Simulated scan of single mutants.
Amino acid sequence: MHDGHGFSTRAIHAGQEPDPLTGAVVPPIYATSTYKQDGVGGLRGGYEYSRSGNPTRTALETCLAAIEGGTRAFAFASGLAAEDAILRALLSPGDHVVIPDDAYGGTFRLFDKVAVRWGLRYTAAPITDLSALTACMSEGTKMVWVETPTNPLLNIADIEQIADIAHRHGAILVVDNTFASPYLQQPLALGADVVVHSTTKYIGGHSDVVGGAAIVRDDEIADAIAFHHNAMGAVAGPFDAFLTLRGVKTLGVRMDRHCDNAERVAEFLAGHPKIAEVRYPGLAEHPGHDVAGKQMKRYGGMISFRHKDGEQAAVDVCARTEVFTLGESLGGVESLIEHPGRMTHASVAGSALEVPADLVRLSVGIEDADDLLADLRQALG
């Protein structure tokens, strides 16, 4: 019904028709584990047990498919639960995957410490160097996995070109779209086969719920993920689905404000004498600026920077902010600051994916920009 409508119209209405019985405009929380059957196998609306399906979760999944331009979506208990189900649904022992050489630490840990134990092989490749990425492809490569922008280095992958490379080699492309959000980037339209999100981040948007999602267009891929979604059971509960759906409604307006604020913060940091490098795709000097401009609506709310005075100075900045809260995660309305090397990316320490020790990551929130700039100014000293 909402196919021809704009993004925010779909975000507010898809899967969320007023309740036919009461006229309630918000889908209710169906806090039930099971459903009455009208005779053996006589299911009302197809619901039999809430691991297999729950109307609140269905509303969220319908909405997520609509805003990502997919046909089917699956809501999980966390982003990593979604990633795990994608790997198990679409790969077999012995298969090879190409992953980013600057992947999110949790994604790397899932491949390196979990998937490898049941026979998966992976190679970490630079997603910005297409010839190097192509060189990592082999006959056994069944999947290419990218984030764009990457976490925490904010590198940009050319989704269209990487989809072409993956498909030429008979592999599928999975894109982690968490940093951009569906509002700023639509990987399925650019050739990706699966989009994955930590809905904890921008989609939920309020730092009050943990969740994940996988969105697809292809029926065969959808059926495989659907089977594992139910068989493994890491599903989003109705309360979490309700909160996530509540967040989705304001995704467009929030992302606009995140981007407005991040652009001002990035400009400020780029001119600061204590900053060695600012990584933000919206800056003209960012190596991925042109590709990001081609495939993203705007450049997002995430910024990383390197401190000229090294690791301890970077850690000290994180301790001194007052408006920016020191904490992990990202994508909420409040601004967060963290030291990836000791916090979100500690799991890649000592590996090829280790992040620079002098790196600080900002999740720029939707507070007043002047307050954010003043806070960073005092924290940098």
Rank of each mutant, 00 (worst) to 15 (best):
V196Q: 15
S198D: 06
T199E: 02
T200L: 11
T200K: 01
K201N: 15
Y202T: 13
G204S: 14
G205E: 09
G205A: 10
G205H: 07
H206D: 06
V210G: 07
G211K: 11
G211E: 03
A213L: 12
V216E: 09
R217Q: 02
R217A: 01
R217N: 13
D219Y: 12
D219G: 06
I221K: 06
I221N: 04
I221C: 11
A222T: 04
D223P: 06
D223H: 04
A224T: 00
A224E: 06
I225V: 04
I225N: 11
A226M: 01
H228V: 04
H229R: 12
H229I: 00
N230L: 00
A231V: 09
A236V: 09
A236L: 14
G237P: 08
G237W: 12
F239T: 08
F239H: 08
F239I: 11
D240W: 09
D240Q: 12
A241L: 01
A241K: 06
A241P: 05
A241Q: 07
F242M: 05
L243S: 13
T244N: 13
T244R: 12
L245M: 15
L245E: 09
R246F: 08
V248S: 01
V248P: 01
T250D: 07
T250L: 11
T250E: 14
T250M: 04
L251Y: 14
L251D: 08
L251W: 13
M255T: 10
D256Q: 12
D256K: 15
D256G: 14
H258A: 02
C259D: 11
N261K: 08
A262E: 00
A262V: 02
E263A: 07
E263N: 03
R264P: 00
R264T: 12
R264E: 07
E267M: 07
F268I: 03
F268H: 07
F268Y: 14
F268K: 14
A270Y: 05
G271S: 10
H272T: 04
H272G: 09
P273R: 14
K274D: 11
A276E: 06
A276T: 01
A276S: 14
E277W: 00
E277S: 04
R279D: 13
Y280D: 07
Y280R: 01
G282P: 06
L283Y: 00
A284V: 08
A284W: 02
E285L: 03
E285I: 02
E285N: 10
G288T: 07
G288V: 00
D290K: 15
D290G: 00
D290H: 09
D290V: 12
V291A: 13
V291C: 10
K294F: 03
K294C: 03
M296S: 04
K297T: 15
Y299I: 06
Y299Q: 02
G300A: 05
G301F: 01
G301A: 08
I303E: 04
S304D: 09
F305D: 04
F305H: 05
D309W: 05
D309I: 07
G310W: 10
G310M: 09
G310K: 06
E311G: 13
Q312C: 11
A313R: 03
A313P: 01
V315Q: 15
V315H: 12
C318W: 10
C318M: 10
C318H: 11
A319M: 08
A319K: 15
A319N: 14
A319Q: 15
T321V: 09
T321H: 14
E322L: 13
F324K: 13
F324Q: 08
T325A: 03
L326S: 15
L326W: 15
